[in-house]
């Protein structure tokens, strides 16, 4: 076992996969010489050379397009869009090209590409760098969407994403870059589409993603002292969503709360709530609750984020309300 932070766990994953498969390459803004805008690709240029680790112009549409064309012609590209907020610049390549190629041409082309991107929610960098936009891509058939919350999950999921024959949007969380975890030295994969029960409990199912997983776990400690045991489920992959694990938990607890950094309307919290209605309505003792920031852009100034985003106090309060 070796203690790794989230950022290095991802570097390790990419490094291992590049060593394993010569078709894997990495391209994006500042990924090569600089080692990544946030250090997420340190050492890869030296290890794999300038053709396979390549800085691109600031041209998001062609960065993704590069990946699409390379994937269609036998490569396994990892293309990096520095922040998910920049997806507006490349959505055509993601939604109309990458996501549909396998379907449209009935499998004649595989699309083994990873679109590596990041949310910097609650990092205090304002309205164009802090958004949680996973719903944009979760809504598109043909895409897979991963958003890990721990170093081990990040590593195992990145390796699976690189080996997957579908376009995978891999959303890192900058706020989690420094968290550490013991990770086995032996190779391992974590399958896409499988949720993880981060804490078992009998009273309330709490589905949380990214940063909110950690807030939910902190809330669980407090609630446990009150005798309320919440079960914290991290879907890890939001598309395809592991509905079975969530539903099995709700069948046990009869109560559910979904906590996300993304907004309610048309978002993951709403999707999870709807899946619970579809599959476990007659196991619900109270309505499914959603805890998210209010429907506003993310302002910059100090204090705005703390005010807008769910925290352990609001999670505790929401759970207490479910238990009333």
């Amino acid at each position: 076992m070796t203690m790794k932070n989230y950022c290095w766990a991802l570097i390790d994953a990419i490094n291992e996969e590049m060593a394993r498969d010569p078709d894997v390459f990495l391209a994006g803004e500042d990924v090569a010489a600089a080692g990544g805008a946030f250090g997420g690709s340190r050492g890869l240029l030296a290890a794999h050379g300038p053709l396979r680790v390549r800085d691109t112009p600031i041209s998001e549409e062609v960065i993704v397009g590069l990946g699409v064309g390379a994937a269609m012609t036998g490569k396994r590209p990892i293309v990096e869009i520095m922040f998910m907020d920049f997806f507006g610049l490349c959505m055509d390549q993601i939604v109309n090209q990458a996501a549909k190629m396998h379907y449209l041409y009935q499998g004649a082309f595989k699309m083994p590409m990873v679109i590596r991107t990041m949310t910097a929610v609650e990092m205090g960098i304002g309205p164009h760098h802090s958004q949680s936009l996973e719903a944009w891509v979760g809504h598109v058939p043909g895409l897979k969407v991963v958003m890990p919350s721990t170093p081990r999950d990040a590593k195992g999921l990145m390796k699976s994403a690189i080996r997957d024959d579908n376009p995978v949007v891999f959303i890192e969380n900058l706020a989690l870059h420094k968290i550490k975890e013991d990770i086995e030295d032996e190779e391992f994969l974590i399958p896409l589409g499988k949720a993880d029960i981060k804490r078992a409990g009998r009273d309330v199912t709490v589905v949380a993603t990214g940063l909110m997983v950690h807030k939910a776990l902190a809330a669980a400690e407090i609630l446990s002292q009150e005798g309320i045991e919440i079960e914290v489920i991290d879907p890890r992959t939001i598309s395809p969503l592991d509905v079975d694990t969530i539903v099995a938990s709700v069948r046990k607890t009869n109560r559910a709360l979904v906590v996300t950094s993304a907004h309610k309307p048309f978002g993951l919290a709403s999707e999870v709530a709807a899946q619970i209605m579809d599959h476990a309505f007659y196991d619900l003792d109270v309505p499914v609750a959603r805890l998210t920031p209010p429907f506003t852009p993310q302002p910059f100034g100090k204090g705005f984020e703390a005010f807008l985003h769910p925290d352990k106090a609001s999670i505790v309060a929401a759970v207490r309300e479910l238990m009333a």
Binding site: L176, K178, I179, L211, H214, K215, A219, Q225, E226, A313
Partner: peptide
């Protein structure tokens, strides 16, 4: 009351949680 897991301490706010 606050007893937060070590990993979570790094990232989770220190918002006080009112009693029930």
């Amino acid at each position: 009351v606050s007893s937060v897991a070590e990993a979570a301490k790094v990232v989770v706010d220190n918002v006080p949680v009112p009693a029930a």
